[in-house]
């Protein structure tokens, strides 16, 4: 009976949302960027007099100093135009990691969960896999402004390395306090960059470094610095969650 009601609700809501939204949305082929904020982000014309109409001056490989010059526009949006959202987002992750810690910590003891039998191949191969994974993770978050990837993806990859360590042997236990301190420092670093922007340029989270040549590793001003901090923070947070889940009551 309950399922029937839920099914009716499903169909009703699908009809309500679908038909209603269909009237206003520009879907698929009808979708254009014209006049949207996304277009101005791509053209890097947010701060010009007429963001939607002005001719584009953006060019890959050139040094024209426009709006941070990150080749990956998504990164420019995430850590540039909408950096404040990202600050909130890492805070949310920080809060969740704290919450998970609080829930598991409540029972007092902090021993790690013993695995039945660590995989032999895994424990042998982890020795040389580990540096590779960490290197790859670091590569992903240092090149976030040039290629797909960035702090969140790189951070997850590094957390996977910590998980590998847990899987490889029963002796390993992540340094919980150290991770928490690293989290705090990288989060505070992000905020201090924001406050430095406020002091130097008058706007919170504004860029205060030279923006360089689009496509070069040392470009895009403050963006790579922030993404490295986010990478560290996310890796510490997710590793912390891994170690909390691997702990035993």
């Amino acid at each position: 009976m309950k399922k029937v009601i839920a099914l009716l609700l499903f169909l009703g809501l699908l009809f309500f949302l679908g038909t209603g939204l269909e009237q206003g949305l520009k879907l698929g082929d009808r979708n254009t960027l014209a006049g949207k904020a996304g277009e101005a982000y791509l053209k890097r014309t947010v701060n010009s007099a007429d963001p939607s109409a002005s001719p584009s001056q953006v060019e890959y490989g050139s040094e024209t100093d426009i709006e941070e010059n990150a080749a990956n526009t998504l990164t420019a949006v995430v850590v540039g135009y909408r950096s404040f959202d990202t600050l909130g987002e890492v805070t949310v992750l920080f809060l969740a990691a704290t919450g998970v810690m609080a829930l598991f910590f409540a029972s007092g003891k902090k021993k790690r969960l013993a695995l039945a039998k660590p995989n032999f191949i895994l424990s042998v191969s982890s020795g040389f896999l580990l540096p590779l994974i960490i290197l790859f993770g670091a590569y992903v978050f240092t090149h976030g402004h040039l290629t797909p990837g960035g702090g969140f993806q790189g951070g997850t990859i590094i957390a996977a390395a910590v998980l590998l360590l847990y899987m490889a042997g029963n002796a390993y236990k992540a340094p919980a306090t150290g991770l928490k301190v690293l989290e705090g420092f990288s989060g505070a670093g992000y905020l201090l960059i924001g406050l430095a922007g406020l002091l130097l340029t008058g706007f919170f989270l504004n860029n205060f470094l030279p923006s360089g040549k689009m496509g070069a590793l040392f470009s895009a001003g403050v963006i790579p610095v922030v993404y490295i901090l986010i990478g560290l923070k996310v890796s510490a947070e997710l590793s912390g969650i891994v170690s909390d889940y691997m702990g035993e009551d």
Partner: peptide, 21 residues
């Protein structure tokens, strides 16, 4: 929405980066 050697300047061929963010 990434500028590369293949797409050097703004052309109206990019997906909207904002929803992705």
């Amino acid at each position: 929405p990434i500028y590369t050697d293949a797409v050097k300047t703004y052309l109206p061929v990019f997906a909207d980066p904002l929803p992705q963010a």
